[in-house]
């Protein structure tokens, strides 16, 4: 969490535009550079900036880790789901042409739109997850270390040490 006023105000101004730009890149990928992957990274960058300025807890309140982990899987499922749909419609796997029985080119358009959405979703969610995991780990470790310094024995509640841990539960 950053206490200074300037970065907080600037972030408040910037983040909506970052997210908007992410959406633009997502849906404009057919025409210019960009696509699901880049959009996902930009979108995640917006959230990460938010977490850096306002603190991890606040960010987790806005986009909960549970939701993110669902989105991680959902994006891949959307992509693969399009493939399964094309199989069921009688085409080859990922042959979007069959999505529109009258106009294969339109089917291709539709397929690309959906799969790019899936790509963007998984990429953004994975980036946010990875950031949450690293930042969360930092927080826990710091807390444990301060415990450690205050009262050495209490830290044993958290960990038995690697040797005992390797043997696992009985």
């Amino acid at each position: 969490m950053i206490e200074h006023l300037v970065p907080r105000v600037l972030a408040k101004l910037l983040i909506p535009f970052i997210l908007l730009f992410g959406l633009y890149v997502q849906f404009h990928g057919d025409f210019g550079p960009g696509g699901g992957f880049q959009a996902g990274v930009i979108f995640a960058a917006g959230i990460i900036l938010y977490a850096l300025i306002y603190g991890l807890d606040q960010a987790r309140g806005v986009i909960s880790p549970g939701l993110v982990s669902v989105l991680v899987a959902l994006g891949l499922l959307i992509y693969a789901g399009v493939g399964v749909a094309t199989l069921l419609l009688g085409g080859e796997f990922l042959n979007y042409g069959v999505l529109d029985s009258h106009d294969p080119v339109h089917g291709q358009h539709l397929g690309i739109l959906i799969i790019e959405f899936g790509v963007g979703m998984t990429v953004a969610a994975v980036m946010i997850t990875i950031f949450y995991q690293f930042a969360g780990r930092l927080k826990i470790t710091r807390e444990l270390e301060s415990d450690d310094d205050d009262e050495d024995e209490q830290a044993d509640d958290h960990a038995d040490g690697p040797v005992a841990d390797a043997r696992g539960p009985r």
Binding site: R137, T141, H158, A159, V163, D165
Partner: peptide
Amino acid sequence: VMMLLSAMPVIGA
């Protein structure tokens, strides 16, 4: 990364 980092850290060493 979820698997590697989600568990309670072991800082015994």
